[in-house]
Write a protein that binds this DNA or RNA. Structure first.
Length: 139
DNA sequence: GCCAACGTTGGC
DNA sequence: GCCAACGTTGGC
């Protein structure tokens, strides 16, 4: 299983809304960046992703799971954009803030730090484990 | 095909 | 609200 990080402004789409959407999941839409699109296309059903709140909050707040792999975005016919459906899995007992991530030397290479504008990012196994520990999240 | 101008994202 | 980083657009 691979791990990812997906970013959303809570004003637009928050963790609470993701939870309210239930087990069927909802499409992760609005990705209009090719690097992010490639990451979406690499996701497999069952892969897990950190759900990160950008702007307001700036923290990893929970884990979401891929329930449907990439398919064409019906909002953009003829264009290469894709959607992936996610469902909320479980919240972090303690959200892991960007400040905390930046303060951890082992996480200095995280895409969240290095490529701050990329909205869909891969997360390495080591990064995944460490961030889960920091948030008190038991996989 | 280069690069300046512009728009957007997202941290501060 | 500002601005840095980055992607995209369009003139040449």
């Amino acid at each position: 299983m691979r791990h990812w990080l997906i970013k959303s402004e809570p004003e637009v789409w928050s963790w609470d809304k993701q939870v309210a959407a239930g087990a069927k999941g909802t499409p992760w839409d609005g990705v209009r960046n090719h690097a992010a699109k490639l990451n979406l296309m690499a996701m497999k059903k069952g892969d897990q992703a950190f759900f990160y709140h950008s702007n307001e909050g700036k923290a990893v707040v929970g884990v979401a799971e891929v329930v449907r792999e990439a398919y064409p975005d019906p909002a953009t016919p003829g264009e290469p954009w894709v959607l992936v459906d996610f469902k909320a899995l479980r919240p972090f007992p303690t959200p892991v803030t960007l400040v905390a991530i930046k303060a951890e030397p082992k996480l200095a290479e995280m895409a969240l730090v290095k490529l701050s504008r990329l909205s869909v990012q891969p997360v390495t196994e080591a990064e995944w484990k460490l961030v889960c520990e920091m948030g008190g999240y038991k996989g």
